Amino acid sequence: GETKIIYHLDGQETPYLVKLPLPAERVTLADFKGVLQRPSYKFFFKSMDDDFGVVKEEISDDNAKLPCFNGRVVSWLVSA
């Protein structure tokens, strides 16, 4: 499998796309960081919350699996 991750960088209009050679349910924050090489950023991901619906959730645990929608991951990188 392959996972497409779209990421928005510090408010830039056009998002970036990276592809990881892993199925979406196995991709972790560490996998994503390894491709990006951007150490001083906070990582937020499109996520579903039972109370609020669609939210941007910050993930900082490198072992955390990334939230996935239709085989895609959507993220926002914010300068720390």
Rank of each mutant, 00 (worst) to 15 (best):
T28C: 02
V55R: 15
S40K: 11
S60R: 09
S79H: 07
E13F: 06
S79C: 09
L22G: 01
D10P: 12
Y41L: 04
V55G: 08
W76Y: 07
A64S: 08
L36I: 10
K19R: 11
D49F: 06
F69N: 08
A30R: 13
V74D: 05
K42N: 07
K46L: 10
L29N: 01
P21T: 05
W76T: 05
S60V: 12
A64V: 06
K42V: 01
L20G: 04
R38S: 14
V27T: 02
L36V: 10
V55M: 12
Q37W: 06
S79E: 12
N63V: 05
G11L: 08
E57C: 11
T14W: 06
S60C: 13
T3V: 08
A24T: 06
L77M: 08
L66Y: 06
T3F: 07
D62M: 07
I6P: 01
G1H: 01
S60L: 06
G1T: 10
V54D: 14
E58Q: 06
V73S: 04
A64Y: 01
I59A: 07
S40N: 14
M48N: 15
Y7T: 02
F69Q: 07
Q37C: 11
E58M: 07
P39L: 06
V54A: 13
A24R: 06
K33E: 03
D10Q: 06
D31T: 09
I6D: 05
D61R: 05
V78Y: 13
I6M: 06
S75I: 07
M48D: 12
T14M: 09
V74G: 03
K65P: 10
D61G: 02
S60K: 13
P39N: 13
G71H: 09
T3P: 06
S40L: 09
V78S: 05
F52T: 14
P67D: 04
G34T: 12
A30S: 09
K33C: 05
Q37L: 10
R38I: 10
F44T: 03
T28K: 06
L20Y: 06
Q12T: 11
P67I: 00
F52I: 13
V27P: 04
L36H: 00
F43A: 05
V74S: 04
S47R: 15
V18K: 05
A24D: 06
V54M: 10
D10E: 12
P67A: 01
G1N: 07
T14F: 11
S47N: 13
D50E: 10
R72D: 09
K42Y: 00
S40M: 13
V18D: 03
V18E: 03
F32E: 04
K65S: 10
K19L: 10
L9S: 08
T3I: 00
R38Q: 12
G53N: 15
E2K: 03
S40R: 09
A24H: 06
V73C: 08
L20Q: 00
A64E: 09
R38T: 14
H8M: 07
G71L: 06
V35Y: 10
F44Y: 12
E25Y: 06
Q12H: 14
V78L: 08
C68Y: 10
V18G: 05
L20M: 03
G53A: 13
I6F: 12
G34A: 14
C68V: 13
F45T: 05
V27W: 00
D62E: 07
R72F: 15
K42R: 14
L77H: 06
I59H: 04
P21V: 02
S75T: 06
K19Y: 10
W76Q: 00
G71N: 08
D51W: 01
D49T: 14
V27L: 08
A80V: 11
G53R: 15
V73A: 06
V35D: 01
A24Q: 12
S47W: 06
D50P: 12
F52L: 15
K56T: 14
